[in-house]
Structures are given as structure tokens and as C-alpha cells.
């Protein structure tokens, strides 16, 4: 039994550095940011005098922040919906014993390997509206050539589109990931289930609707969580692709936070945005973490 206690000590010692690092660098820092968000630090000189929720109040009164919240909701809904639909569609199609399935899969998934910065640089040119002197460029030019001039648009420079154009690029990058998750899920469903349904005379479509899709629900949940938290935090893509845009039509809270903290030196305001971001992500993640922890115990 002496050996066991020694092992106990070793196990604690092994995990302690990581636990302490996370305690300080995640929880401690969040606490510190929380404090700053309640303080009066506005300028290069650190000022930690507490002023209550004033920074939050003012933030919600700021037009830019209101636009940002609106943009985040639009972006999240569009990005989630299109990624899930495309991901599921591709997964179902690839599940039909496709020749060179591996090739298709690799093509759909490769954008995941790229940095959002790379994606942003490329899509900023693809969705460039062009100008009077240049004529059409990028996707607009393709539309012109295909005789689909009607579909041309100002993309991210048009305030009525704005953030939706960024969602297109984000969907390009992440929908393959959803496809991969769904496909892995489908492959995990025993073939007998489908066989049994076929014997009962169900059509392929009905099999997907009534058997496979319900079984894939946990995957949809995972995908929503993963894409949702990426979407709430999105910063790199906006930074490389559009910046805040005309009248902040492509601005997001994470970008505003960076801008106001490190360009405007409004540290308390920046901290307040960061805390709001954190709370929104936590509202998504914590129930999920609790849920997975519970189901794991049950397993």
C-alpha cells in the first residue's frame, strides 16, 4: 500500500504544473480581466479603481457595440445553418458508395488545415466588388462570364450584406469539418439497422430521415457547439478579410475588443467586451461540458 500512496503523490505532481498553469492563465486571468472591466482603466496609465458596471452600461449604449451584437447573431445563424446543411448533404452523398470517395473527402476538408488569415486574404479578393474602372473581379467576374450578372453584388462592402459575406468564407472553411463529423457518425451506425429497414420496405430516403438522422443528433449538437463557439469568437477572419467595414457592417465584438483595447487604449472597455464574449461562450459550452461529463459517467 505504501507504493500506492507514493503513486498518488506522483500523479498529483505530474498534473500539478498543468493544473496550476490553467488556474492562473485561464481562471486567474479571467478574474483579472473581470476586475479591469469593472475599473476605470482608460489610457496608458493603469487605474484599477472600481466603478461598478458603468463600463458595461456604456458599452451597451455604444452604437458600434449594438451593431456588433447584431452582426454576431447574423453571422452565427448563417454560418451554422449553411455549414450544417452543406456538411450533412455532402456526408449523405458521400455515404452512397462513391467512387474515389477519399478524394472528394480530402477536397471538402482541406480548408480546415488553413489559417483563417489565409482564408481571409483569398476571399477578400474573391468577394471584391470591383469598381467602375476595373469592372468586375473575383466571383462577380465569374458571374459575368457565366451570364449570371444579376447575381453580382457589392459583397462585404455593401452594408446590407456585410458580415454575411464573411459567413460565406467561414462556411467554405468549416463545412467540410461538419461533413467529416457526420460521415464518421454514419459509418458508426451498424449496417444491420439499415438492412432491417430495407427488408421492411423502407426507401433509402426514409432510412435517412427516420433512422440515420435521429441517430446523428449528438453529432449535430457537437457541431453546433464547436461552430457556435468559433463563430462567437471570430476575429482572424474579419481582420484579414474586411476589417470593421463601412458603418461597422463587418465588425464583431472580438475585433472591437482588439481595436478599443490596443488601438484606443480603453482597457476597461476592452475588458468588458472580453467578459461579455466569455459569458456568451460559457452559456454555450458549460451546459455541454456538464452534459458530456454526465453521459460519460453513465457509460
Amino acid at each position: 500500500m505504501r507504493g500506492l500512496t507514493w503513486d498518488r503523490v506522483t500523479s498529483i505532481l505530474l498534473i500539478a504544473p498543468s493544473a496550476i498553469a490553467i488556474l492562473i492563465f485561464v481562471y486567474g486571468f479571467i478574474g483579472w480581466t473581470g476586475w479591469v472591466s469593472l475599473a476605470r482603466w482608460d489610457g496608458m496609465l493603469q487605474d484599477l479603481t472600481l466603478v461598478g458596471l458603468r463600463n458595461y452600461q456604456k458599452l451597451f449604449d455604444t452604437e458600434r457595440f449594438q451593431i456588433d451584437l447584431h452582426n454576431t447573431v447574423t453571422f452565427t445563424l448563417l454560418f451554422l445553418a449553411s455549414s450544417l446543411v452543406i456538411g450533412l448533404l455532402l456526408a449523405v452523398l458521400l455515404d452512397q458508395r462513391i467512387r474515389s470517395e477519399g478524394l472528394f473527402r480530402s477536397i471538402y476538408l482541406f480548408p480546415m488545415a488553413l489559417s483563417f488569415i489565409v482564408t481571409g486574404v483569398v476571399w477578400r479578393w474573391l468577394l471584391n466588388p470591383g469598381s467602375r474602372e476595373l469592372g468586375s473581379v473575383g466571383v462577380n467576374l465569374l458571374f459575368d462570364k457565366a451570364g449570371l450578372g444579376l447575381l453580382k453584388s457589392g459583397w462585404y462592402t455593401d452594408p446590407s450584406i456585410g458580415i454575411k459575406a464573411v459567413a460565406i468564407a467561414a462556411t467554405w472553411q468549416m463545412s467540410g469539418y461538419v461533413m467529416a463529423m457526420y460521415l464518421a457518425g454514419m459509418r458508426g451506425i451498424p449496417e444491420d439497422l439499415r438492412e432491417a429497414a430495407r427488408v421492411d420496405g423502407a426507401s433509402e430516403l426514409e432510412i435517412y430521415r427516420h433512422i440515420i438522422l435521429p441517430l446523428l443528433q449528438p453529432i449535430t449538437l457537437s457541431a453546433v457547439i464547436i461552430l457556435g463557439h468559433i463563430s462567437l469568437k471570430i476575429f482572424d477572419l474579419v481582420s484579414a478579410m474586411t476589417g470593421p467595414g463601412l458603418g461597422f457592417c463587418t465588425d464583431v465584438p472580438a475585433y472591437f475588443m482588439f481595436d478599443t483595447t490596443f488601438r484606443g487604449n480603453h482597457f476597461s472597455q476592452g475588458a468588458a467586451i472580453a467578459i461579455i464574449l466569455l459569458l456568451s461562450v460559457a452559456a454555450l459550452i458549460i451546459p455541454y461540458l456538464v452534459y458530456t461529463a454526465r453521459t460519460e459517467v453513465q457509460r
Binding site: 493544473a19 486571468f29 472580453a274 464574449l277 459517467v297
Partner: peptide
């Protein structure tokens, strides 16, 4: 340890904006 693990995991999801200033 079953408490520690999700506490560690949470660090993966946080928006890093919330740690930048102290960092």
C-alpha cells in the same frame, strides 16, 4: 479528477480576448 478535467477543458473554449490584457 472528474472535476479537474472539465475545468481544464473549459480553457480550450474561452475567447482568448478574455486573457489578453493580463497575459
Amino acid at each position: 479528477s472528474e472535476v479537474l478535467f472539465p475545468l481544464l477543458l473549459f480553457g480550450m473554449f474561452i475567447p482568448y480576448q478574455s486573457v489578453l490584457i493580463p497575459l
